[in-house]
Write a protein that binds this DNA or RNA. Structure first.
Length: 420
RNA sequence: GGAGACGUCGCAUAGUCCGGUCGAGUGCACCACCCUGCUAAGGUGGAGACCCCUUUAUUGGGGUCCGAGGGUUCAAAUCCCUCCGUCUCCGCCA
């Protein structure tokens, strides 16, 4: 949730934010009103409560012949207190519902608009060219006996697959390259739970507009399957006051990810570009708010280093405000060239959530003056199963074999070419 | 899955049976000062989180927090209910 103080002191900034996102500006007025209402009700309750507390003491201290009369008086007061308390509860519920619906305020420079209004930050490398007709990754995967889609569908349904032999090894190699990269930069590896409680799921913002994307267990276990380890990584320090005096806390979380892909029927049906289950290595940083933008650049640079190590050409885009998740204040996607699609496809994404997510999960740190303040949280992908698509297609040869990028060879026992 | 015990402001505990004197005591750790002077001890004082008003200076006042949420009551850490979690024993299964 956004900083209520910003809402109070500079509602215009929030209005601009909503406008940039293409979201409701009127909601800001509702939020301001809800805030005022909430504070008024709190004031009423507290003064009544103070009166009751004081009165309770005289009742307790009174001699027993006077007690009956005093208690009768107190009853009246108690009824008022109870009503006032209910009014506070209602006002606070309304406030958090309305304010919670406001997205994070984009950082200056984030382009306005929606999905297609991203701004190119930079390009690296040039799209691969071939002197033969390139095969798509599904075909290569079949030729190499590396990706078995037919049996994935047989066992689990559409959008499922088996990674087999070289495919399985390639994914593990990629993950290990990512893990080593993370370790070099001081990230602590974490293998995270993929089933989480409702409060963690909603605290991280995944039960909002994208609730349909999430698998939920309904056999008496009120748990959600996470679509990214970001959920567990953010929940990890929820309700805590962190010690950031030695610098940011950085984690590299590895987990399987589950997505329902509701609403994308017919989209990317072929291969493993869009699947219900995949693996991902995710970076997650808890930093002081003033360090957030620098940290964002760092995460992006690690991602680019990974893409480069895998020999992929890519572009970095600054995602437009309307296409940010509600938690993000800025998001960079790194998209790799996928030869058979003749276009760039998202391989990684890194979001600076500033203090938005932390405020909802109640994650704070101690400032120099000893006070507590919400931390900033950032996340970014370091490797996912989807990378296999770009790697296989980019480095394929006419005979269907695939050249292994140098950086991955040590993780494949020195293998230089994937061939059957 | 069955039976039992438990969840107190950093950690450890007192208090809960007999509701008001506990808006919470004590020990350790922590911070400041004093004493002393040496790889320590002693003394004094302080100290949490959140919210509202005020001030805008880390000011002053008020409210909330005894796992979470409800209930009973003039009044609940203390009684009742639900949920979450921990521990012990048994069963079952890896």
């Amino acid at each position: 949730m956004i900083d209520p103080q910003l809402l109070r002191e500079n509602p215009d900034a929030v209005r601009r934010s909503q406008e940039l996102r293409g979201a409701s500006v009127a909601l800001v007025d509702d939020a301001v009103a809800a805030d005022a209402e909430r504070r008024a009700r709190i004031g009423e309750f507290e003064s009544l409560r103070a009166e009751q507390n004081a009165f309770g003491k005289t009742v307790a201290a009174a001699p027993k012949e006077e007690k009956a009369a005093l208690v009768a008086q107190a009853q009246e007061l108690a009824a008022k207190v109870k009503a006032a308390q209910q009014a506070v509860t209602d006002a606070e519920d309304a406030f958090s519902r309305i304010v919670g619906a406001l997205g994070n305020v984009p950082i200056d420079g984030v382009p306005a608009g929606g999905e297609d209004d991203w701004v190119l930050v930079r390009e690296h490398g040039s799209p691969a060219s071939f002197d033969f007709e390139p095969r798509d990754h599904a075909e290569i995967g079949e030729l190499l006996d590396a990706i078995d889609i037919a049996r994935g569908v047989k066992v689990s349904g559409s959008r499922f697959y088996f990674l087999k032999g070289l495919g399985a090894r390639l994914e593990l190699a990629l993950m290990n390259l990512g893990l080593d990269t993370a370790l070099q930069h001081g990230f602590t590896p974490l293998i995270t739970p993929t089933l989480v409680r409702p409060e963690i799921m909603s605290g991280t913002g995944f039960l909002g507009e994208h609730a349909d994307e999430v698998y939920h267990l309904d056999k008496g276990d009120d748990l959600y399957l996470t679509g990214t380890s970001e959920v567990a990584l953010a929940g990890y320090h929820s309700d805590e006051i962190l010690d950031l005096s030695d610098g940011p806390l950085r984690y590299a979380g590895w987990s399987t990810c589950y997505r329902r892909e509701a609403g994308s029927a017919g989209k990317d049906n072929r291969g493993i570009l869009r699947v219900h289950q995949f693996n991902k290595l995710e970076m997650f940083s808890y930093v002081g708010p003033s360090d957030a933008e620098a940290e964002h650049e760092r995460l992006l640079s690690f991602q680019e280093a990974m893409l480069q190590a895998c020999g992929l050409s890519y572009r970095v885009i600054d995602v437009a405000a309307g296409d940010l998740g509600s938690s993000a204040a800025r998001k960079f996607d790194v998209e790799a060239w996928v030869p058979t699609q003749g276009t760039y496809r998202e391989l990684t994404s890194t979001s600076n959530c500033t203090t938005y997510q932390a405020r909802r999960l109640d994650i704070r740190y101690r400032t120099e003056s000893g006070k507590t303040a919400p931390v900033a949280t950032l996340n970014g992908t370091l490797a996912t199963t989807r990378w296999l698509v770009a790697i296989l297609e980019t480095h394929q040869q006419a005979d269907g074999s695939v050249v292994v990028p140098d950086a991955l060879r040590p993780y494949l026992g020195g293998l230089e070419v994937l061939a059957r």
